[in-house]
Design a protein around this nucleic acid. Sequence first.
DNA 1: CGTAACTTGTGAACGATTTCACAAGCACCA
DNA 2: TGGTGCTTGTGAAATCGTTCACAAGTTACG
Lengths: 207, 207
Amino acid sequence: MKRIADSTVRRLSLYLRFLEEFEGRGLATISSDELASRGGTTSAQVRKDLSNFGSFGKRGLGYSVPELRARIREILGLGRNWRVIIVGAGKIGAALALYRGFSQRGFDVAAVYDSDPRKIGTPWDGTTVRDIASLERDATELRAEIAILTVPADQAQKVVDRIVAAGVRAILNFAPVQLRVPADVTIKTVNMAMELEGLSFALTNRE
Amino acid sequence: MKRIADSTVRRLSLYLRFLEEFEGRGLATISSDELASRGGTTSAQVRKDLSNFGSFGKRGLGYSVPELRARIREILGLGRNWRVIIVGAGKIGAALALYRGFSQRGFDVAAVYDSDPRKIGTPWDGTTVRDIASLERDATELRAEIAILTVPADQAQKVVDRIVAAGVRAILNFAPVQLRVPADVTIKTVNMAMELEGLSFALTNRE
DNA sequence: CGTAACTTGTGAACGATTTCACAAGCACCA
DNA sequence: TGGTGCTTGTGAAATCGTTCACAAGTTACG
């Protein structure tokens, strides 16, 4: 399959959100132009993005909202539920676990891990915090596909190696470090400091 | 000034982190190649990034670690402290406020806002939660440059309009919606759902 | 002082992504 | 049925970002 740009995938996510909103309002069809203006892009961009995967619209009419929504869900792999583990039961991990959007969107938190003996065994939103030492041992039981990493920076690489060893092939990293993973593992890093510094740069270098 | 790519700014942040680490270890100089391999990029990329802002290296030798660190800090606008307000005292807001890296890196939390009467007035890490209604009134006192937005999606646009009205020109948005702001306001959106869907796409469309 | 080893800074080539522009398809209506 | 108005899908052009490749500067050393 043709390589798809990361920016395209992000926009598909965005379109999906708008389509859900439009469907909630009972709209039957939508044009690439309406979708574009809602998402801050252009109609040509919307059509190009979609054309990577087929042709879903009707000339002269636009796109059927429910159909396009279904197609994008399928493209993004949201036709099924994913098993997620959260590694690091600190403040950020807790905030994420409580975020309702998660399970609503088909990402089920299967387990939460920590290395702190004071946290291990404590109750956590219907389950209990597990010892990070049992990560590999639990792997066959849980068969998690996605890991969310919220451990301190200095432990992140060590922990991510074990996550990969446990068979997880997609990682969302909140630790403020650059992690190394094998080529067949997808990792996305969300780095607060980097975002803030981007804002600082923008404020400083206004013309 | 020449327009700088977003990707360049993100890499500068990354280089800065490495330089701090190297300086901590007492290294005096570093080559573009070492910096590159540490950050998963190429030496040409490092040099091109830096060349946007001047020439800081010595041919044959590389870059002085302390000097380059100082230069990048200056470029990113980190030579001063920034006043930050957190709008939305929920779980995510709380997790962020407690994140130590913030103040360490020169981003001072000047105030926290919420609209929930049960939260307003409660103590919060040395200050108290303020009523979001007083946002504009507080503006001249606080002179905040950056706002971190962690309110529910359905309130986000309304709140962001008020943040802009209060004179804030840079916003880090955690609400899972696309926000509209005037052209002179910089907004960065961190959207968990979008990141997870990116992982879902990657897992689904492996060749 | 000359040469070898190394590394920067940067035009030019390349590759990827976005925008343009238009033929072709569809619905509606007279 | 033919004409009008609208919107898609997509090559081609333009723009943007990355990689290549090499001249030129610097140090080390005999």
